[in-house]
Every structure is written in structure tokens, then in C-alpha cells.
Design a protein around this nucleic acid. Structure first.
Lengths: 228, 228
DNA sequence: ACCACATTGTCGGCTGCCTGACAGTGTAGT
DNA sequence: ACTACACTGTCAGGCAGCCGACAATGTGGT
């Protein structure tokens, strides 16, 4: 906690180079979906991968009582999605839903595998990408096991602001328009707990909410809420 | 629950072919470690990957209060280990400790990357391997969020018996000699809870313990303890 | 065979967070 | 502009599982 927060957000970006993206665009088809659209569902055959050009997508599972649990993170523009399921088992285990309007390149499994065979460099990059996500998933497991809810919420806010926040007077603005229920599903808690905790953060002037947009005012103090 | 338990244990095997293992042996060095040995530690430079020939290894993180949290699973003979950290960031985030005496092939990062470049097939296999583990990690997150402790323990026992149990009169014997504390660290609970829950399972004749070995007597009934 | 230490068994008290419930407020659609 | 519905705010009650403590038992090392 005292030491620099270097590894606070583990395994973050690792983006594709523009050349790599171009390779994918060349063999794929560009499509657009409106906000709210479900891109793929659990149990479907995983026969394609996606490169997100614009917008954000949430990867989640459905629990038996209908709760949506965000097991991966939110996928940002420039990231790929649907990799693990397509490369490994062939069937989706997650849902992917568009948080905003999105534009993405769709590539069939076959074409993608062919591309990987031709372009070693890209293949290595994809492997690294999975490795980065692997670390992130392991960190998530650790946090769920060892941390209390307030710490997990604080870290989530910091992560999101780092990855998709835009600077705004006095802080970083998060324009994803997530509901408290969405947030609860990302950190393994309930809607009510998120509501009251966010209000605590507001009272302490760590964050500010207007409508469904959250602005991080004091990331440093927010970090101090992270206790193991 | 009613449907066949096909996907109960997600993302499991996916082993290397003997030809693939041979490729790795050819560029690596075979070494042995005694039970209890730490193979690598967090913060170390991740400049090598391992192929386990014999024995079991546990991948875990250390929480600030000293608890060991098993974030990956246990790595079995035939599996590779240290991949994600070596391929991605370059620094270990986990510890790897030998649960039993182990024999493994050690390969330097450079040699391994060269091999991947020469052997496309192996590169793809490694990618698939990471993809499989990715799924497993996501399943773990889901379980931690949605399931109670008894369900998580039941699933763990089933998983372990499936992966490293050996058939024995009346059930599958697990020879890993895990302590209740070890088990607690794998499912995110405390030692005491594991103790009392295991005793409940014993009383119901689902499992049997002799010394530190656990025998799964009734996997079917154990499955029925898994409730969402 | 012995001893020191690690592991298991058990229990009572405590608490963080979930559950359910309901009122107030925002927001999208017609 | 109005309506229906989705989201936020708040609170009381309950409980799963954590924490600490201690005794009993097992186990590895010499």
C-alpha cells in the first residue's frame, strides 16, 4: 500500500498495433450494433472472433437466479473478444452485450486460424493477450477471496477510469452509464450495497455522480480504501 | 443440475501430445525438486516455462495476512506452467510450490519463443491451453460470486478426484495430502469451515479420510450439494 | 522413540453483507 | 406531456461464515 501503485491494475492494455488490426480488418466484415444488443449468448457455437472498433462490450455469465455476473472485464475499443471460447472449446460460456453503440470486425474461426498460421507475429500477440487476461482473471480471484466489498468497488472505479475514463474538470469522467446493478455484477455484491457504498464515496468527495455518469475526483484517496 | 454434468468441470484437460512434449524436452533441461520446494516466487523475473513430467504443483498468491490463495488450479503431470507470466509481463505474480516430489523440464523464455516460432502447431496449442485456463478462471470467478462454500468445496473435490484421483475400492482416492488450510485457500474460505464441512460430508458417507488422503465415495450425491 | 510443531476438531460470539420491501426519482417511449 | 418502467435510496432483520481460542491428535525430524 505504501509502495508505488505500479501493479494496482494488473495485466491491463496490451493492444494490437495498427498493422495487426489492419490484417484482421482485411479478412473480416465490419458490422455495427446498437446499445443493448446481445452479440453472442452462452451455449452458442463459438465460430467467430471480434475486433472492437468503437464502443464498449460487457462479457458476463447468467446465474441461475438471473443475476448477470461480469466474469471478464469490459472490453474496450481496440481489443479483441470471443478469443478464448473460439480457440478452445467451441461453445460460448458467456454472454456479450453492447454497453454502447458498437462497431466491430467479425472474423470466422477458420479465417482467423489461417491468419494466425500465416502471421506468426499476430499469433504470438494473441497468446500474449490471453496471458494478460489470464493474469487479470487470477487477480480477480484473489480479490474476491481476500478483499471486502468496499475495496473491490474502489479498485473497479480506478480500473474503469484508467481504461475508459476521459479527463474532465476536476477528475476522470466515466461515460459508460453503468447501473448499480451492473457494477454489483462486476465485483460480486448486491445492488443495494453498491448504492450505499457509492453514496459513502460521494459524501467523502472521492467521486461525483450526475445521472448515470461517474466522475472520479480523488483517485489517491480512493486507493486508500483498498485494504486487504 | 438436472442436465448431464458435461460442463461441470470446465476447460479441463487439453494436454500436449507426446510429440509436442518431446519438442520441449529437446530444448530444455530436466530437473527434480523435493516436495515442499518453491519453484518460483512472486516478483521474480519470469524468464522460463516448465513442463511437469511427474508430480503436482500448486500455484498460489500470498495475501497480506499471510494466507496462501490458490488462484490457478493445481498443475498436473503433463501440463505446462509459468506460461502466462513468461509470455506476458515478465514478472511472476504467483508462487509455485511442489506438492509432491516433482520432475520437470525447464525451458528459457528465449528458447521457448524460438520453438513457438518454428513450430506453429505448438504455438497454437499453447494459445488453446491459455484459452482453456481462461475459461476455468472465469468459471472460478462465477462460482466465488454465486455459490456458497459447501458447493465450492463439493466441486473442488469432484474436480480434484477427476484430475488426479486414482480408483480404489469403493471410490477415487486423492493422494495429494492437502491440509484443510490448503483446501480453504483453493475455494476462498477458512480452515475451520473446511474442517467442519468435510466432517459433514464424512457423516453423509460422501467422502472418507484416512490420514491426509481423501477418498470420494459418492460423486453423484456430492454433486447434489452443488446448488446455485 | 521421542519431541516439537503442524494439523484437526469444536465452539461461541460477532459482523459484513445479503434479503426483501417500499418509497422516491429518473428516463425512455408514444 | 404523460405514462410506464427502470433505477436509486434506505432501512430492518437475518444468517453464512469469519475470528479467536483452546484442546486433541497426528506427523516429520533426529
Amino acid at each position: 500500500m505504501a509502495e508505488p501503485q505500479k501493479d494496482l491494475v494488473e495485466g491491463s492494455p496490451l493492444v494490437l498495433s495498427s498493422r495487426e488490426k489492419e490484417l484482421i480488418r482485411r479478412i473480416g466484415v465490419t458490422v455495427s450494433y446498437p446499445k443493448g444488443q446481445i452479440i453472442f449468448s452462452a451455449e452458442e457455437v463459438a465460430d467467430r472472433v471480434y475486433l472492437i472498433e468503437k464502443g464498449w462490450i460487457r462479457i458476463y455469465r447468467l446465474s441461475s437466479d438471473g443475476r448477470e455476473v461480469t466474469v471478464g472485464s469490459i472490453r474496450n475499443p481496440g481489443e479483441m473478444m470471443g478469443l478464448a471460447e473460439t480457440l478452445y472449446h467451441g461453445k460460448r460460456t458467456c454472454f456479450a452485450g453492447a454497453i454502447s453503440n458498437v462497431t466491430m470486425v467479425v472474423v470466422t474461426k477458420k479465417d482467423f486460424l489461417d491468419l494466425l498460421t500465416d502471421e506468426h507475429h499476430l499469433a504470438l500477440k494473441v497468446t500474449q493477450l490471453l496471458a494478460a487476461r489470464m493474469r487479470e482473471a487470477e487477480a480477480m480471484v484473489h480479490e474476491l477471496v481476500c478483499w471486502q466489498v468496499p475495496s473491490r468497488l474502489a479498485l473497479l472505479l480506478l480500473k474503469i477510469s484508467e481504461r475508459c475514463g476521459i479527463p474532465d474538470e476536476g477528475g476522470m469522467k466515466i461515460k459508460l452509464r453503468l447501473t448499480h446493478e451492473d457494477i454489483a455484477g462486476m465485483i460480486g455484491t448486491t445492488r443495494q450495497t453498491v448504492t450505499s457504498l457509492l453514496n459513502t464515496f460521494k459524501r467523502e468527495k472521492l467521486v461525483e455522480c450526475q445521472g448515470r455518469e461517474i466522475k472520479i475526483l480523488d483517485p489517491k484517496k480512493l486507493t486508500s480504501w483498498i485494504v486487504e
